[in-house]
Amino acid sequence: MAWTWFHRLASPPHIYRVAGRLMPWLAWPAAVLIVAGLIGGLVLAPPDYQQGDGYRIIYVHAPSAWMSLLVYTTMAVAAAIGLIWRMKVAHAVAASCAPIGASFTFAALVTGSLWGAPMWGTYWQWDPRLTSELILLLLYLGYMGLRSAFDDLQRADRASAVLAIVGVVNVPIIHYSVIWWNSLHQAPSVMRLGKPTMPPSMLFPLLMMLVGFTLFFGALLLVRLRGEVLSRERTASWIREALRP
């Protein structure tokens, strides 16, 4: 009895319908939060006492970096569910995640480099965070490359699921080894992106952006998931019902 919701979740017609209905409920709050966060971050928050207005890049860099990790984790969890319970919809979720995650990892890299430029005096510094983001981008590219290398969809789903799980076990190891590596080779006075303590007027826009980006990811995922589900269920009669004008 308790598992009926799980089985319904696994049913493509149900997912297609629910995702379509749920999407606006994520998209509109995301839009409101992101616009409010932008106004708060660019206009209302005071300049930083050290970095002036340059720190305002945090309002796009931190949410992008957060997305890069959140999406990878979501992808790996979905992949594991798909692999263990042989749930097609979970594989569709994992497939939908990869391009979103890769693009935001790219954004995090570019904004991190742009933030570093005035602070370090160079566009690229082998800073642990930027290095980790770069490796994460390569992990995403590997995942997408493996997925597209198979002709057989089921095989692509399951092989890329194994890779996502191996990757998610490795991400923290890579992250901490990169931090360790960096601490050996650089002077201890490394400029840290971000600050441990922020006044509320700076912090609130950041929180709004973080929540807004998360909801935005949810909305994107639902749209992509609908597309994936439709193209995977090639002959099911429910599509006839769902698409009838």
Binding site: G54, L114, W115
Partner: peptide, 8 residues
């Protein structure tokens, strides 16, 4: 630096 970041 700020505007290109937001643009990207």
């Amino acid at each position: 630096y700020v505007w290109p970041s937001y643009a990207v």
